[in-house]
Design a protein around this nucleic acid. Structure first.
Ligand SMILES: [Mn+2]
Ligand SMILES: [Mn+2]
Ligand SMILES: [Zn+2]
Ligand SMILES: [Zn+2]
Lengths: 137, 137
DNA sequence: TTTTATATGCAACTTTGATGCGTTATAATG
DNA sequence: CATTATAACGCATCAAAGTTGCATATAAAA
């Protein structure tokens, strides 16, 4: 009987280590994005700082997580939806950064198309909102 | 006879120091945003690293520059338009981050309005595009 | 020209992140 | 189940970005 974090690791072809399961559990428990500093605080004693960095990178590369830069330049991570893979991320949605609780939410809001001046070729768009989240407002 | 950087400093009520004029000249010479590391490289020997940080902060606070976070989390700065002040920045336009030359351009493209889920109150929107700029494409 | 507030330089420190390397543990294979 | 190759981990070390405290220098006002 495998738990769900182990299933996710297997599905993405990653070795089933204690540290990876611990990190993944944090995301399963949270409904918003988690910053690297926050994760480091929560997992102090559980694993080395460097291991956390490497796990986050490998999770992003394999399509388990996607990264979000907040207003202060801090790296945050959130679960990807099921269709994400190493080959392609499908995370072009709005990210909401609450000014009060500082949480970051992935909202199911599509990024509108924009008209750019001639010569500019868009590869990717990112849209971030600041303000008050639904619980803080 | 004052040069234009001195006029800008006076207009914003900032002391006219050699270091501030040197920093401001870099922005007058550039048609794209400048990153902190790039500025530090260019102004090595001209002033202390800490002074540069403090000048950039004061310029942002007084509405001379606005800050832009690029994809790698590096802080960049660009000239504000004439109507910006300490009280309010008017820099809600699209920022284009070229994948090739890595320059950041402030484009005169308004950020479209978006519909958020109930409870979320937007204070500010930021829209960033990556791709190829007009000279690289 | 003096005075005073502000800006600067320098030292020290923190945080975030990267890299090299020896050791440990996973998972495949026999 | 035992062996073994390889990937992951822990630890040490380093670098870049940014902050803070304090003494000194310098604009700008008096
Ligand atoms: Mn997201
Ligand atoms: Mn801009
Ligand atoms: Zn909130
Ligand atoms: Zn370019």
């Amino acid at each position: 009987m495998e738990n769900s974090t182990e299933q996710v690791l297997k599905k993405h072809g990653l070795k089933n280590t204690r540290q990876r399961n611990v990190v993944l559990e944090e995301f399963f428990k949270s409904n918003n994005a988690l910053s690297q500093p926050e994760l480091e605080k929560r997992l102090k004693g559980e694993m080395d700082r460097v291991t956390l960095y490497r796990i986050l990178s490998s999770f992003e590369e394999s399509g388990i997580l996607h990264s979000i830069l907040d207003r202060q330049g801090t790296m945050n991570y959130a679960s990807c939806n099921a269709s994400c893979s190493a080959a392609h991320h499908h995370d072009e949605h709005l990210h909401f950064n609450c000014d009060n609780c500082h949480k970051i939410f992935c909202l199911d809001v599509k990024i509108p198309a924009v008209n750019l001046p001639a010569g500019f070729q868009v590869a990717q768009l990112s849209l971030t909102a600041t303000g008050l989240c639904d619980t803080c407002s």
